[in-house]
C-alpha cells in the first residue's frame, strides 16, 4: 500500500490518485510527441493547440469527435465487460465486423430495428464458441478469440464479394441501405447519429449493472478470484459464458450502429481496428464505465482531430499515430503488470 493511500484515506484523494494514474500515459504521450515535433522542426504547442481546436473547438468538431468515439464506446465497453469477468476477450473486432455485415444485410430487407437486433445477435454468435470453450474446457480465450477474428475477416470478406455484394458497385460492398432505415442524425448536418446515445446509455447501464446487480456482482467476483467465487457457489463457467455473450452482443450492436448510422452499408475497410483500439480503451479506463467513456473520447478526439488537422498544418498524420500509439503502449504495459 502506498504511503499516499495510507495517510489520506479520504474519498477525494483516492479519486484524485486514480485520475492522476489514468492521466500519466497521456501526459507522457504528449511529451514524447512534443519531442518528435521539436526534432522535426515543428512547434508542439501550436500543434497541440490545433488538435484541441479540431477535437473540441465548435459544435461541428465535437460532433466529429463523438462520432469517432462512438464505435470505440461500443468496443471498449464490450472488452471491459469480458475483462471484468477475467476473460481476456480480444474478439470484439470480429463481433463488430460481423455485426456490421449482418445488420447492413438485414436492414436492407427488414429495416432499422431488425438490423440492430440482427447485428447484436451476430456479435453473440461470434463470441459464443470461444465463450463456451473457455467456460467448459478452460481453453485459452486469447487464442480462440483471435482465431475467430480471422475467421470473421475471411467469411465477411468472402460474403461481401459473393452473395451479399451489391450489383453494379465497383468495390466490395453491400447495397446501400435505404435512407428510411438509417439511424437518425442528432445534429444535422454534422453527421452525429443517435448511435452515440445508444452507446452512452449502455455505458450508464453498465455502470449501474456491474455495481448493483446480482449478475454484475458475480461477474466482478469471478474476475477478481474465480476460485473464491466457485467456493461461494457462483457458477463461474456460466458467468464467463454470460460475460462473453454480452460482450459479443455489444460488439455486434456497435457494428450495427456503425453500419446503419455512418457507413450505411458494409464495405471493405468497415473497421480500421475498432475492436483493437477498444482493448486499449478498456485497459486505459480500467474497465470502469467512466474510464471507458473517457478513453473512447480521447481516442476519438485523436482520430477526428488528427485527420482534419492536416487541413491546417503540414504535420503528417504519423505524429497522431505516435500519440495514440504511446498511450496504447502504456495501457498494454499495465495489462502486462496485471497478468
Amino acid at each position: 500500500m502506498s504511503v499516499f493511500q495510507g495517510s489520506n484515506p479520504g474519498k477525494y484523494s483516492r479519486a484524485l490518485t486514480r485520475v492522476v494514474r489514468a492521466a500519466v500515459p497521456f501526459v507522457i504521450a504528449l511529451g514524447l510527441g512534443g519531442i518528435v515535433l521539436l526534432a522535426t522542426g515543428h512547434n508542439p504547442l501550436a500543434f497541440y493547440q490545433l488538435l484541441v481546436r479540431e477535437a473540441f473547438g465548435g459544435v461541428d468538431r465535437i460532433a466529429a469527435t463523438l462520432s469517432a468515439a462512438t464505435p470505440l464506446l461500443f468496443t471498449g465497453l464490450a472488452t471491459a465487460i469480458a475483462f471484468r469477468a477475467g476473460v481476456f476477450n480480444v474478439g470484439v473486432e470480429g463481433g463488430f465486423v460481423f455485426g456490421g455485415l449482418i445488420a447492413a444485410t438485414v436492414a436492407l430487407q427488414a429495416g432499422l430495428l431488425a438490423g440492430m437486433v440482427a447485428g447484436a445477435l451476430a456479435g453473440v454468435l461470434v463470441s459464443a464458441l470461444p465463450g463456451w470453450l473457455k467456460a467448459r474446457w478452460n481453453v485459452d480465450e486469447v487464442v480462440t478469440t483471435l482465431m475467430v477474428n480471422f475467421v470473421v475477416a475471411g467469411v465477411t470478406g468472402w460474403l461481401v464479394t459473393t452473395f451479399l455484394q451489391a450489383k453494379g458497385v465497383a468495390n466490395s460492398a453491400t447495397a446501400l441501405i435505404p435512407q428510411g432505415s438509417w439511424l437518425p442524425d442528432l445534429l444535422p448536418p454534422y453527421g452525429l447519429t443517435a448511435g452515440v446515445l445508444v452507446a452512452l446509455a449502455l455505458v450508464v447501464l453498465y455502470a449501474v449493472w456491474i455495481k448493483h446487480s446480482v449478475l454484475g456482482y458475480e461477474l466482478r467476483q469471478t474476475g477478481l478470484n474465480p476460485r473464491f467465487s466457485a467456493a461461494q457457489g457462483i457458477r463461474v463457467g456460466r458467468v464467463i459464458m454470460v460475460s462473453m455473450l454480452i460482450s459479443g452482443a455489444i460488439a455486434g450492436l456497435g457494428g450495427a450502429v456503425h453500419a446503419l448510422g455512418v457507413v450505411h452499408r458494409f464495405v471493405d475497410g468497415f473497421s480500421p481496428g475498432y475492436g483493437f483500439t477498444g482493448i486499449a480503451v478498456a485497459l486505459l479506463g480500467r474497465n470502469s464505465a467512466v474510464g471507458v467513456a473517457l478513453g473512447a473520447v480521447l481516442f476519438g478526439a485523436l482520430a477526428s482531430a488528427g485527420t482534419t488537422a492536416q487541413l491546417f498544418s503540414d504535420i503528417p498524420l504519423d505524429i497522431v499515430d505516435v500519440l495514440s500509439g504511446t498511450v496504447m503502449i502504456f495501457a498494454v504495459v499495465r495489462l502486462w503488470r496485471q497478468r
Partner: peptide, 25 residues
C-alpha cells in the same frame, strides 16, 4: 495544396469532407 490521410477514411468521410468545406479550400 494539402493532403489528408486518415486511418479511418471510410467512416470519417462525412466529417472530413464537411470540415474541408468550411476551411477555405
Amino acid at each position: 495544396g494539402q493532403k489528408i490521410e486518415s486511418t479511418d477514411v471510410v467512416a470519417q468521410g462525412d466529417q472530413l469532407l464537411r470540415r474541408a468545406g468550411t476551411s477555405g479550400y
